[in-house]
């Protein structure tokens, strides 16, 4: 297992290299010259050259990429062109908010999603199942920004229960977490239901029933445990997807976070900030994939052998 782990982690290196190169290159396609932001009207060409040199914008692309990657690996994400502050400081301020939001949404999705999935599987094709699956369909098809707006309308404007925006205490987390969570709940409930139904029909479960174990014990101890493999795998693989949803939701609730920072920086053509945000999201996606693969390997020896 250890050697598999090491191999799998080593495999991340080329992927990281590729991702970082793509992130770096794509941003140089965005129109708009960030240097204009820094120049006073009517500045001389030499002042322009000086600023370009300061930010390394005058070097060949490949050199800029090398410099950037080298700095990134040392934890230096560069300086924001618009605010002239270290990007790592900005990320340090906003990332915790996103992690908090994403983590809670993930927690909510798994707890509620698994519960609903089990309920639906047990009541297969009866009304609780249909109800849950109907809810799942809605949860996965409603645009998250719209859900967010409706929640604000009902719970903040009409009822005044929760603050409208910002990140001030736990009460401002409730609505955004629910908004992101709805999509996650739908996904987890669907996968859990299928996995439960699948597992319930397996030989070992039939054997347990034949042995005369109480059905509830079989359900909660054996079937659920087995059914969790695909659920956990999907959750891990979809971490990026949940963070992506957070981009929109952070915007709707005007919460500080990687998403709002990214959107603002994209609009301002602030390359270093955009790069850093994308990099953070990419790392989250890669770690999620790694986690998913490891869980799968832990459960399924064949994958381990194929790699080894």
């Amino acid at each position: 297992m250890l050697s598999y782990l090491i191999k799998r982690i080593l495999l991340l290196a080329p992927v990281f290299l590729a991702v970082s190169a793509v992130i770096f290159l794509i941003l140089h396609l965005i129109p708009g010259d960030p240097v204009d932001n820094l120049l006073k009207v009517g500045s001389s060409a030499s002042k322009r050259a000086e600023i370009e040199a300061r930010y390394g914008l005058d070097r060949p692309l490949i050199v800029q990429y090398g410099m950037w990657l080298g700095n990134v690996l040392q934890g230096d994400l560069g300086t924001s062109i618009v605010t002239r502050r270290p990007v790592s400081q900005l990320i340090g301020q906003t990332l915790p908010h996103s992690l908090q939001l994403g983590g809670l949404a993930l927690l909510l999705s798994s707890v509620v999603g698994i519960l609903l999935g089990v309920v639906a599987a047990r009541a297969r094709d009866r009304w609780p199942d249909r109800l849950v699956m109907g809810g799942v369909l809605l949860g996965s098809t409603l645009p998250s920004f719209w859900i967010g707006l409706i929640l604000i309308l009902v719970f903040s404007v009409q009822l005044g229960w929760f603050p409208v925006s910002g990140a001030r205490g736990w009460s401002s987390l409730v609505l955004p977490v629910i908004t992101i969570g709805l999509g996650g709940i739908a996904l987890v409930a669907r996968v859990t239901r299928v996995a439960m139904i699948d597992t319930a029909g397996r030989d070992f479960v039939l054997l347990l029933h034949a042995k005369g174990l109480p059905p509830s014990r079989i359900l909660w101890r054996h079937v659920l445990r087995h059914a969790m493999i695909p659920v956990v795998t999907i959750l891990a693989l979809r971490i990026g997807w949940i963070l992506g949803g957070a981009v929109t939701v952070e915007y709707v609730f005007a919460r500080p976070g990687i998403g709002t920072t990214l959107i603002k920086a994209l609009n301002q053509h602030d390359y270093p900030v955009v790069q850093a945000c994308l990099l953070m999201l990419a790392i989250a996606v890669m770690l999620g994939t790694l986690l998913g693969d490891i869980i799968q390997a832990l459960m399924d020896p064949r994958v381990r052998e194929a790699i080894a």
Partner: peptide, 24 residues
């Protein structure tokens, strides 16, 4: 496969936001 796997693991909204920033 590598390119597809990479972009597949990124949320569509992110890919779309960046593309709209490029194209307008």
């Amino acid at each position: 496969t590598i390119v597809v796997d990479l972009s597949w693991s990124f949320p569509e909204i992110l890919v779309a936001l960046i593309l709209v920033a490029i194209i307008g």
